[in-house]
Design a protein around this nucleic acid. Sequence first.
DNA 1: TGGTGTGAATGCCTTCACAGCG
DNA 2: CGCTGTGAAGGCATTCACACCA
Lengths: 223, 223
Amino acid sequence: MSRAKKNRAESIDPQSIPKAVVNRLSLYLRELQHVVRSGRETTSSSRLGSRLGFTDAQVRKDLAYFGQFGHPGVGYRCQELIEAIRRILGTDLGWPVALIGVGNLGRALLGYRGFNRQGFRITAAFDVEQAKVGAQIEGVEVYHLDQLEQVLLKHAIRVAVITVPATAAQEVADRLVDCGIEGVVNFAPVTISLPDSVSLVGVDLAIELEQITFSVVNRTNSR
Amino acid sequence: MSRAKKNRAESIDPQSIPKAVVNRLSLYLRELQHVVRSGRETTSSSRLGSRLGFTDAQVRKDLAYFGQFGHPGVGYRCQELIEAIRRILGTDLGWPVALIGVGNLGRALLGYRGFNRQGFRITAAFDVEQAKVGAQIEGVEVYHLDQLEQVLLKHAIRVAVITVPATAAQEVADRLVDCGIEGVVNFAPVTISLPDSVSLVGVDLAIELEQITFSVVNRTNSR
DNA sequence: TGGTGTGAATGCCTTCACAGCG
DNA sequence: CGCTGTGAAGGCATTCACACCA
């Protein structure tokens, strides 16, 4: 099926893989796609690393968690490694995604091209405002939140993106869990708690800016 | 000036503080604000920690990098700690922010309330499309990218948010650096390189989803 | 020569455990 | 008694260094 080199060992316990490694895997994938677009067919751990700010050893160690993908003396064949990483991340499967909360940010995500490119497709949107229900935005139907369970089942949706106001986020999350959701990306600026059988990633736009101001303020103005 | 307890030591080298600690600091801040809104005046390291998924020791250690904020037998007084963290992050200063790229995502961020609440204000937006230049969106003036230097200087803007397409991101970043920018949050799905005198945080919406699918696919369906 | 994969060493972050204080 | 601040211990992730391969 695939021409991966020695695939004998899918045997490592996936639970034991550091979160940071998985994050870097996504960065490798993005960078590999960039390399392909720029016309190169192979790259190396040191090239990849220096582009992303990691050591070459780090890159090799990360990939070694999942198998043997490199070719000594050559490096990594981009297309081959891209396919491998997409299989590892699961994005080769194509994921229908639900979006809850059709406000400014929700609408922006509905129009975001990057999702499709990486194997995601927002398949249904939800809101509680009747004025929005029934509309099509960027080709995606907007349902009332009460239709959540029905629509998730119909489209076999397993992951959701939350873009509702902070005050509503926990309640929405609970309803998603009741409907059997398996993973959530939360853009509401509040901590939500879920059973740990459900995967959760939080993105807070203000927090990203805070990380910047901290390092700007605390930069030693040498150099 | 402030009633922080023993503030003798701002003496720790800020460079030596782990990135992860600063990240959690932002989470503590957000949670403390939540606690205040819910009517409580104090909280404790264990309460904070369990809400956010950290141990109590972790919370205390993190805060100890920056000083002594707690009250034995009582815990942390929310308002006091909020102010301390905002000073540490620098967000007590109020930051004018530039936004480059008035597309879907850019527009959404222009309307995002959360920034103001945390001490940021998008003060100027930029684009290269003449149709957008001159408009006011959410009360923010849209300038042509060629006016970048002039406007940044005028408003004393030191940090910027990039929401342009991936193909334009590096060039925009370079221009920002030329104008003396000190920090950048990059929402374009591509790695950009900057002199390391400039702080950089990247946010890739598709990558967040990839983290979710990985853990969903690799969940051991026990429990 | 140019590059991978990987045990061993290093270093950093987290957790433990407890003294000390209100 | 409750809870903080912190040295010491522990564990985990990164880096080093080298055998091996094309």
